[in-house]
Structures are given as C-alpha cells and as structure tokens.
C-alpha cells in the first residue's frame, strides 16, 4: 500500500479521517492534486512549516475548495496535463453547507474534479456543532438534547441525490470500514470523465463520543444497520449496492455512541429509536440492501 499521507499529523488518536485520506490517495496515486477546504483535515495535516501531504495540495478557504479545484483543473488542462487527477477532500460542513454554491457550480460546469466528502456528520473542528449532514435526533452542541429536545430536529440532507440531480456521472457512498470498496469507488470515479461525488462515512471520536479503538467498528455497524447504505449512481441510475447479509438493529449502533445517549435515558426515547429503525428499514427497501 502506498502511503501518501505521512505520519506525524495531528489528528486525534483513532480518527477515521487520516485512514480515509490514505485509502483515497492509495487509489489515486501520486499524479494527483488535492484541494481541501478549511476543517479538521486541513488543520491536522498542515501546521506550517509541516505538511502530511505527499501529493500536491492546496487549501484556500472553508467554502471554495470546489471552485479552487475547478481552476486547478482548468490550468492543468491548459498546460496539457489532462492525466493529473484533481480531487477535493473535505468534511461535511464545507460540503453540505457553506461550500454548496461552489460545488453546484463545479458540477454544473462539468469539471473533471472528483469531490470526496469525509462525512462525520457535524462541525467537529469548531466543537461538534450541527451541520445539515447531522442525522435526525443527534445531540450536537447547537442541537443539544434537553428537557424538551431529542437533539437535531431535521433529517440528514441527501447530498448524493443533489449530486445526481446535477447529472454528475458518478456518485457513490462509501465507508472507512470497507477499504476495498472505497478504493474501488475512487478508481471508478477517476476512470469516468467529468465530476464525481463520493461521500465516505468517517466516525469522529470526540463528536460521536466512543472509545478510540471502535472507529472502524462503528463505521461498519452503520452500514450493517442500513442507516448508511453503500451504493453507486452511474449516469443517474442506481448501480452496484452493498448487500447486507444480516441486518443489525439500529439500537446496537446508537447505544455505542454518546451522541445518542439521550435516546436511552429520556422518556420517549424508545419511540425515537423506532423512528430511526424505520429510516433504516426504508433505506433497505429503497436501495435493495437485503436479498
């Protein structure tokens, strides 16, 4: 395995993000330029005068990575370097929320840019505030559980569907717990000309509150409960789907994390867990996850 994301970075012990990046870069190889928005990844990987990146890398602002990557791609094209991969690797805050306009523009213009979101479902770098990627009923510091609150009052935004609506030729979800699948998807995205969007489930220890060693296990569990279906959309059509052999109850996933603690302690929590189970069941049907 080629290692293009150097050790010595400052990510929390057991963070899913460096593993995600390492796998992406292993699939893309060294002939790659990466643009990253502001966020955990940028902060832990580039404290001047150090950098964990072994590939050419640029950070400009929180909300403009897709636009910066557009310019990178245009300039590489201009200089006849069409073989160079151009990736964005950024978190859910910069993807689902503040960077949305630039991403829409990049998709719309059809740049050969592969946008990969490591999704930890909140603004972790600033201290676990809600993003539009935060799932229903999740405790964050801006949607805290309380006497009259079960946490986040809104469902997770369906970002892959937004990418599909832009006629992005390759859209996929992935999980850090499925490295073979993730690498294959990055390679497939790179092989299809035009923009791509891949959304990778990447648990955050401090934001989700769990034991550091459980990172991969949690990302596996979210897939096995059908809360995070693994699928591809190629040219707008649902393609390959990761089948789930034995579907696990969502309770198993929820109880392993501090961000759902309130569902097990508060009156009415059981009803909420049922609602979350219904969402998982709906995913199983919608994407045909079960045989």
């Amino acid at each position: 395995m080629q290692n293009l994301f150097a050790p010595g970075h400052r990510a929390c012990a057991g963070c899913a993000m460096p593993t995600t990046v390492k796998l992406i870069l292993d699939a893309a190889g060294p002939n790659t330029v990466v643009a990253s928005p502001t966020g955990c990844l940028e902060v832990v990987s580039t404290p001047y005068p150090e950098s964990a990146w072994e590939v050419a890398w640029i950070h400009s602002l929180f909300e403009n990575a897709a636009a910066v990557a557009s310019g990178v791609e245009a300039a590489l094209k201009r200089f006849g370097k069409k073989d160079t991969n151009v990736l964005v690797i950024g978190g859910d805050g910069s993807t689902f929320d503040i960077g949305m306009g630039c991403i829409s523009g990049m998709f719309d213009r059809g740049h050969n840019v592969k946008y990969i979101c490591y999704d930890n479902e909140a603004y972790m770098n600033t201290g676990v505030q809600r993003s539009s990627s935060t799932p229903y009923f999740t405790h964050t510091t801006t949607t805290p559980a309380g006497k009259v609150s079960f946490g986040n009052p809104r469902p997770k935004k369906d970002m892959p569907a937004i990418a599909v609506a832009h006629r992005v030729p390759y859209v996929a979800t992935a999980s850090v717990a499925y490295p073979v699948d993730l690498r294959r998807k990055v390679k497939r995205a790179l092989a299809i000309p035009g923009p791509a969007y891949i959304q990778v489930n990447a648990p955050c220890i401090t934001g989700w509150t769990f034991e550091a060693g459980n990172t991969i296990e949690l990302s596996r569990l979210v897939v096995e409960t059908c809360l995070w279906p693994l699928y591809e959309y190629v040219d707008g059509k649902l393609g390959e789907v990761k089948k789930i052999r034995s579907k696990k109850p969502v309770e198993e996933y929820l109880k392993a994390q501090g961000r759902y603690r309130h569902l097990f302690r508060k009156e009415g929590g059981a009803e909420i867990i049922k609602q979350i189970q219904a969402m998982a069941d709906a995913n199983a049907v919608k994407y045909g996850l079960l045989d």
Binding site: I58, S60, L61, N64, S70, G71, A74
Partner: peptide, 19 residues
Amino acid sequence: VDSEFSALSSLVGSSAVGA
C-alpha cells in the same frame, strides 16, 4: 462561474498551478 466568489476562488487554483 456561479458567483464572483467562485470566480476569484477558481483563479486561486489556476494561478497556483502557474497559469
């Protein structure tokens, strides 16, 4: 592009490549 914000942002990318 989709906005002036994107216009200058994309030039940050292209200029960094040497264009």
